[in-house]
Each structure stands twice: as structure tokens, then as C-alpha cells.
Design a protein around this nucleic acid. Sequence first.
DNA 1: AACGTTGTCAACCGCTCGTCA
DNA 2: CTGACGAGCGGTTGACAACGT
Length: 552
Amino acid sequence: MSQMVHDIDDGELPSEQNGPQLNDESNGGSASGVILKKGPWTSAEDGILVEYVKQHGEGNWNAVQKHSGLSRCGKSCRLRWANHLRPNLKKGAFTAEEEWLIAELHAKIGNKWARMAAHLPGRTDNEIKNYWNTRIKRHQRAGLPLYPSEVRLQESKESQQGQSTAGKIGDRGHTGFLLENSYQKHDILFDSLNANQGGLPYVLDIPDISANNILLKGLGSSQHCNFLPSTLPYHKHFHDSTMPFLSSSEVTRNGFYPLHHIQDYTYDKIAQSIGYYSPLNPGPSSQNSLCYSHSLSNGNSSTSKPTFEAVKLELPSLQYPETDLSSWGTSPPPPLLDSVDVLTGTPLPTSLLESDSSSPYNSGLLDALLHQSKNLSSSNNHCSDKSSNSSTATPGDRADSSTLYVYEPECEDYADCVSPFGATSMLNECLAVSTNRNSFDELQPAQTLNENTLKAESAYQALTPNSEDQGMSMLDMPRPDVLLDSDWYELGPAFTKNQVDVNNSRATLIGGDDLGSGFKYMSEEISSGQVWNLDSCTWNNMPAVCQMSDLP
DNA sequence: AACGTTGTCAACCGCTCGTCA
DNA sequence: CTGACGAGCGGTTGACAACGT
């Protein structure tokens, strides 16, 4: 072995310009006084290490140098083996499935590269980390969102469901889920995606606004803007996933959900590839507008000027710049998220805060988002007031302004349209248009729904295949969470134009230009396999839909 | 062609955690 | 209980290539 080392030093050592470095005593010199090499590994060194591992197995890396004569420290050996030499390593670009999974995992566990790698056979933590960091940089520069909307929505959903089943991701043996379950389903998902390459749905995932803005506002960074078109079906695997949400202790290690980086890897690959730009974002020249609409939600801004230049790449997971914490909540300590408008960062009305004492707020941003979404849609009162954050606004106040239609021309400038809430209104409008059956259940009888909600209800009723046979009046219909607890998702290519985007807190009708085509739910509990023909829907009364044909 | 920017990759560094004497 | 040690993890850096201006 020593001879091999000698060979390395004499002949194999690369003549690379920067040449192999030798560890100085301060950081790597072995205890035996051998000068340990640093820098790129040579093939000879690799051979030594491989041979050593073959004979001795992995581990005890510090013994490698002693036994093999390899002039590398144990850490370096371990890294080299793990990242380059161990068998079954998968090289090359990440597949779409892997990218999706990375995003999903990152949304769940944050920068836990090793844990991610555990779910990506053949991939190393370093690879994943590099990949993700590169993506972050790119998205930050472009002002693009990070996570796929579906990931976020799923997180939201699971955050609620996981409240009672919270546990560490790694503690639940959910590895199988990812490796066995989601992989298969990702296949479906990306098959669908591929199939739609030429015509992905113009899905404006309105609810994402809220998610985006939770983070956006919390982070004060457009980098974290997540408002993006939903380009991928809300995939079944999410539902099937047994991956529980993070335990509150994990999720809120710092008091909030570990969405350290918000990005949507689908955005640049898909949305841009298909030339999608939001109505607020007419084209590449303003590709950040989606984020702008959130950036402006800092309370008063009415412009769409991006503000991400000064944003640190990785901000603490939650910050509430310029937020008066003292006015947040009603009970100390003020939750980081619970009492803050996810879009504006402004305190939520007390009524909202108090509306559900059992809310899963403490699970994190997305939880808060979901819950707040429910509250918002239920209370339906805090975006209508254009001039204040008051919680006294009445549902009717916002009815007209909440023409929800993010595509509505007159609402192109959201800041102007609904200031000071800016994008907040988008959320509320989204919520309004959403067929949030929670709201229906709870509020409609009291006539607390605004006009849009009623429209949404109407549309929802229209969606109901046979309300009579089903015995499902609006009030009788399952709550959204029930629906989502069920097994549903869009059916891929068939949904390239129209989608029903449902999550725990809302069901948003999102259409394309062929509104005549049907939606299809798959809901085991409700209407498995049923096709809900939207032809019967009063489209013009469905804000979220009626403008879809105006999409670019 | 020169230069700057960006992306990718590999490796190192510092820290934390678990184990063990 | 405590300190030493090894292993592992996440962050960071540097080299290099590709690309655009």
C-alpha cells in the first residue's frame, strides 16, 4: 500500500494547476505525522480506497490512511467513497421524478440533504445539495418561485392531516412511501407532464398566492414567492402518501415550517417553456410579476417592483419585517404565523385568530396558510376593506372587489385594485371563488358569504353530478377536507385545459380555453370516477374560470 | 477574441451527535 | 459524568466549462 501511495506521489499526482494540496498540521495532518493530501482525488487514490473498502468495508475511515497508506484523512475518504466510489451511484442529471421528489422532500424537511439522499437511490447528499442550491440561485435571480405548487399544497394538506399524526419523517418508516409509492406515482405524474409539454394547463394556482405570501411576507423576499401556475397535476401520490407531516417539533424547530427555500422547479421548466405568464406577468420582460404581486403586499405598496435584490439567499425561515408584533394576536405569545396575514404580513383580525382555537397553526407556515385560508374564506371579511386592516369589513364589502379573477383586466394591478392588501385580495378572492365547502357549511346559512363565494357555490353545485341523486345539497356536500382526504386527483393529459384544483381549504376551478371539457374528480368517498361535466356550470359566474380563456 | 456571468461539480471545513472508556 | 473520538451533516469555496455580451 505504501508503494501505491508512493506511486501517487511520484507519478499519479496530477499536475493540475492548483495541484493537490497537502494538509497542514492545523487541519488534517494525521496523528502519525503523515502529511495528508487535499484537493482532487486521483484515479490511483480512488483505486486504493476502493480496494480498502472491498477488504474492510465501509466505516472506520480514519483507519484507511493507516492501513492503506492513502494520504487522505478519514473524512476525505468517506466523502470520496460516498460521493464517487461507492457502487450503485447514479450519475447524470436529475430526472424529473427526482427533481420532484427533491422539491417535495425539501418542502417537508428543509435542507436535510442526507435524508433526501436516502430517498433518492444512487444520489448523494452533495449532489442534491448542489442541485438545490443552484436552483435557488437561479430562481432567486429570476424571482421565480421554488416549490411546485402541488408540493406546497400537499404540504398544506398534510400539515392539517398531520396534526394528529405528526412525527418525524424519518421516524415513520415512510421510506417505503417514497421509494415504492411515490416513485410509481411520479411516473404517472411526469408522464402526464410530458404528455402536456405542448399544452400545459394554464393553471393559475391561486391558492399558491397565499402560500407564497406566507413565505414572501415572512421572509420579505420575493425569492420566496411561490405564486406560480400549477403545472403539474395534484398528484395522487400525495394523497396516498403516508408520509406524515413533520412533527411540530421538527417543523417548528425555529417556530415555523422549514421552508428555507421556496422555489418551483417546474416554473422555469414548464411555465416558461410553454410561454405561460400570469395575467400579472404578461411576458418574460416581467417574469417576476407574479412575485411582484406579492412583494407589493407589504401593506401599502402599489407597485410591482421586485424587491429581491437585497434578499439574502437563505433567510431565516420566517421573518416579519415591519410587522407590529404587538398587534398580532390575542394571546401571547404571538405565534409567528398564526396571527399574521399570510399575504400582507399584517395582523389578522382578531376574529380570525379566535375563530378556531383548535387550529393547527402551530405546525408551520403552510399549516397556517391553510388554516388561515379557511378562516379567511369563512370570515370573509378582511380583504374587502381597502383602506384598513380592520376586521370589521363585511362580506359584502368585498364582494365586488373580489372578482377574484386574477385574470380580470381591471384587477391587473392588484395593489390598486385591492390595496392595501394587494395580493392579499388575491388570496381572498381565490378563497372566495373557491368552493370551500367549509365556508358553505358554516357560513352560507348565515348569509355571510360574499357574492363570489356564492358564485363559487353555484359553480360547485353545477359541478355536482347529480345533486338530487347524491343527496348532496351544498350544505350536505362533504367538506373539502373530506374530499381531499379521499383519493382524488386530476387525470393528467385529460386535464391539460381544465383542472379542478382542490385542497383542504378550497376547491378552485381553473379552466383553460376549452371550458366545455369536463372535469374529473376521483374521490373514493364521494364520486370515484365520476365525471363532473362543467358544461352545466355557469361559467360566467365562476370568476376563477370565466377569465381563463383570456390567458395568454 | 476578450471578458464577465452563470452553472456544475468536487472537495473541504466546521459543527453536531453518538459512542465508549 | 465527562472527555475523546469517529462519523456524519450542512455550508461554503474553488475550479472549470459553457454561455452571453
